[in-house]
Amino acid sequence: MFFLYSYVGSNLNVLLLPRPNPTMDAALVAIDARFGYSWPDALAWASRHPAISDFLRNIYLSTQTFLFLAFIAVGAFFDVRRLHKLALACVLGGLITVFFWAFFPTSGACAYWTLDPKIVEIVRPVAGSAYGAELNRLMAEGVTRLDNFNIKGLVGFPSFHTVMALVIIPALWPLKALRLPLIASGLVAMPGILIHGGHNLMDIPGGIAVLVVSWYLAEAVLKAREHSVQSVPMESAQAAA
């Protein structure tokens, strides 16, 4: 069901192209600079540490696998309510991300900077400058065909990869033995998202904010739905009396 949602949601994201409003990438790059971060510098560092870069790429590309495993673990160790909460949080997080992007579009650092080809050759970022140029073209022209599924992601801010990488922490938090590994995996995923996802630094706090909102919203929605289901038999019993 969640994968069906992912398919429909990613198609909607593509179909919302082109965006008439200008992207906010320049503003995010300026904010990043105040924190001393720039994507080309991060990739230059990664090019000097290719083994770490390869490790971060593997972690970045495994995010969806980790999420899938988290779904299985939640289903195995907890009740169905927690599984629903995780699924709802992911669905709501995706919706918030896409709708925020629709009004305030961003493509990430990869669409703003042009990297040195030598660095690209060593680091081989998943979303590099060539992909950024393609994002800029899509942002301006949109799509004419919907059979191109080589699009790895369109949204810069907030980072939905951050949501996917970190949502497993609250989902599996009651398992005390897994807390430290979960936090460690979340922390390791962040540099991978920045370097290989071609994101701005600010995209990550944006993703964390979306995660917090969607997690609590999922709980609120579940409570409201459960309350409405419980109140229906009571109302009908009262009517019968």
Partner: peptide, 23 residues
């Protein structure tokens, strides 16, 4: 079908209609 699943199916349905309309 649990109410939460029904809600997700509803969201999928609405997004599917939006997709078809945009196409």
């Amino acid at each position: 079908i649990h109410p939460a699943e029904r809600l997700i199916f509803l969201i999928i349905g609405i997004l599917s209609v939006a997709n078809v309309a945009l196409i």
